[in-house]
Write a protein that binds this DNA or RNA. Sequence first.
DNA 1: CAACCGCCCTGGGTGC
DNA 2: TGCACCCAGGGCGGTT
Length: 291
Amino acid sequence: MPELPEVETVRRGLEPWVVGKKIKKIEVVHKGGNRSNTFAPFSAVEGAKVRNMRRRGKFLWFEVNRNLGLVAHLGMSGQFIIQERKAPDEKHLRVRIDCGDRRRELRFIDQRTFGWVAIDQLVQEEGLEIPTSFARIARDIFDSQFDREKVIERIMKKRSPIKPVLLDQSVMSGVGNIYADEALWLAAIHPERLANTLKRSEIEDLLSSVKEVMSAALKQGGTSFDDLYINVNGESGYFDVELEAYAQDGEPCSRCGTEIRRIAFGNRSSHFCPRCQPRRVAKKVGVKRGK
DNA sequence: CAACCGCCCTGGGTGC
DNA sequence: TGCACCCAGGGCGGTT
């Protein structure tokens, strides 16, 4: 389940190989690898030169010298891998991108087909041209233009539980189910607390926690790939970071020893420590943040 | 507009 | 061993 740190690692891995190359040919090997609403056929970017490898939240964008963008999302199991041309096709190979390299080619592989590669129209945003599909996506917490104050204000107005607000890519992008649970645990906030009942300081704390857990993951991912095999630790798609909450139900909380619980709401599962992350805030017991 | 819900899909796991 | 079921998840389109 790639989230921002994993997607950023993929971006960093792709960048040195793909920037400066020309997209020679894009072949859809297997259905499911492309969105039905792709703006134009892939041939529309063939011959274009890749200028930059960009990312917003979990969305990837090959910026090319043409009035179109090649965009991609890894979904749950998508991978971009630079492989030898002669390497046999993977079972779940969806899209093959030939960048004119004599030996290697870029492949998009996805088991569960929630990922996609598509051509997108460009649109103006603050004087810059970005893919249309990026316009709905809020800037992520590592973006230099990330407006922390605005995001806090926005969260304070939300009447839904804080967990789905964290997952809302139009509020702040890049956070998925795993790091949402990890950040809430770190900030000691119950996932079902209504966003508009959180104190400003709690939201500030939460945003710091989001950045902290993602930075830690990014640190891990940045060391373990080479340009031949851009990968996020095997097939599962997320780093082998030490998780404190996510999927830890039944395990003792590393802060207080209470069993981590798993609950389901909003079509998602959430994991939290019932003691460190009380639904109702007790007087001011002084729950320690972090470890 | 905000909030919410069901759906897309496949591999892995579980229970009988 | 086999089969039926269920679950995970991000994002999107539709509905309230």
